[in-house]
């Protein structure tokens, strides 16, 4: 049985975080991957491409405009989910993977609003015992009001 404290979190939305997609941050992100695609680096090349400007590699959404002790795909809401499930006796947390839907390119100079929401919390029986899967959905919307992407991140609690 899922603890009630956990089921009550389903559907809950977290704080909106504003993210700035800065050109230099895109470059550093692409460099860390080892991706030399000129769309991420070369202003002139990108201007003449179908995008008309430097774009971010899919999955990069910039950095928060206000200081936050946060990691990508990690929010206070995510922490609340972890804490609640930990209290219920599932203290080991594993990364269960991520899923993206990409709708629009993210461009250098964009400002994105990201909103996390608890999409689901489910209990599973496995050979090695019970576990809980929690999924937080994050929606990214740009300054024009277009949803650019959604991310679903799964954590496995055992």
């Amino acid at each position: 049985m899922l603890p009630q404290e956990a089921t009550q979190l389903i559907g809950k939305a977290g704080e909106t975080v504003i993210l700035e997609v800065e050109k230099g941050a895109i470059k550093k992100f692409a460099d860390a991957i080892g991706d030399r695609n000129p769309l991420y680096w070369d202003e002139e090349y990108a201007r003449n491409s179908r995008y008309g400007s430097i774009v971010a590699p899919p999955g990069f959404f910039g950095w928060p405009t206000k200081w936050k002790r946060a990691m990508p795909f990690f929010s206070e809401l995510r922490q609340e989910v972890i804490d609640t499930i930990t209290k219920a006796g599932y203290s080991r947390v594993l990364d269960g993977g991520i899923e993206f839907d990409f709708f629009q390119p993210v461009r250098a100079g964009d400002t994105l609003a990201s909103v996390p929401r608890v999409a689901s919390i489910q209990e599973r029986e496995t050979k090695s015992g019970k576990m809980i899967l929690s999924i937080v959905e994050t929606t990214y919307t740009n300054q024009n009001g277009d949803i650019v992407a959604k991310a679903h991140q799964t954590l496995i609690h055992r």
């Binding site: 590699p57 899919p58 999955g59 839907d101 990409f102």
Partner: peptide
């Protein structure tokens, strides 16, 4: 995950769109 995104972006070329991705 980012490597796999690059795998797909390199393969589909500039005129292709990555719509959905999971790992």
């Amino acid at each position: 995950r980012a490597w796999l995104v690059q795998l797909m972006s390199d393969w589909i070329g500039e005129q292709g769109n990555l719509k959905k991705f999971s790992c």
